[in-house]
Amino acid sequence: MMVASPDVFKLGFVGAGNLAESIARGVAKSGVLPASSICTSHHRAERRAVFQCFGVTILDSSSQVVVDSDIVVLSVKPQIAKKVLFELRPFLTDEKLLVSIAAGIKLKDLQEWSGQHRIIRVMPNTPSAVGEAASVMCMGEKATKKDEERVTSLFNAIGKMWTADEKYFDAITGLSASGPAYVYIAIEALADGGVAAGLPRDLALALASQTVLGAAAMVFNSGKHPGELKDAVTSPAGTTIAGIHELEKGGFRGTLMSAVIAATKRCQELS
């Protein structure tokens, strides 16, 4: 049975999309906050119903969400962040913390548009939906230690959290925010390879998915460099080195590196 944290505060989401839903579900499920301490609003009945089904309070407007919350998570699309913050500016008092998960929107712009000085910027990714997010945060100049602790507890509920300077956020977006798509392609390609080698499609996909999951766990939990783990699997003149040789001929490493760099550059352009 989950027990709510003794530090109970009110959490509101401006923007009730999939990422907001993942965060709210994780927070409620982990016991960091009771669902009754979380609120949002949305004009579509089906989105309101999704949040209501696990106990989140639905309010009539985003301004009411801000008024009723201690921490306000800005979870709208980046293209409308400026418009939304200008509309909410009268309600963002000094007693409230603004947390932005809008990709590419810098702290200085968030401060200018909202008039708010207590701001934390967070870049999570889509595996938040299964409690395996990689999230990174940077602190605004007026955010307090208590603010940092609260936000850390929220995002630890959906995965793992790191802190970094804002100058790294474009590269973080290119790696961890866009990275799941690269891994999905790799899983699909591994499964296709299995099918080409004669495996049934469902077995090939299951093996590919579990292999990637297990390899990631080995890197994270063993503390060993990926190269060392790779060498441990690679016997002289064996099957693995034959496969690695093909990957190297195809520019596998360089292609992945280029993907991260290209996504980083695109993030810089958008921001």
Rank of each mutant, 00 (worst) to 15 (best):
K265Q: 12
Y168V: 01
F86M: 08
F54Q: 11
A35M: 14
K160F: 06
A157L: 06
C138W: 05
C138Q: 01
V233I: 14
G254D: 02
E269N: 04
I23D: 08
S135E: 05
N125Q: 08
V183F: 15
D231A: 12
G12Q: 06
I71D: 07
V130P: 07
D231R: 07
Q268K: 15
G194D: 05
I120Q: 05
K145M: 14
G12S: 03
A24F: 11
Q64P: 02
S37H: 06
Q111F: 01
P124K: 02
A103C: 02
I101C: 07
G194A: 05
G140Q: 03
N18G: 04
G254S: 00
L59V: 10
A186H: 12
A28Y: 10
A164N: 01
V67G: 08
N18S: 11
F252L: 11
S271I: 01
K167A: 14
P127T: 04
K167F: 09
L92E: 08
D94I: 08
F13E: 06
G198A: 06
V66L: 00
A216C: 15
W113G: 00
F9T: 02
A164Q: 06
P226M: 10
Q64E: 15
A181F: 14
R47S: 15
E21I: 02
D202Y: 10
A215N: 10
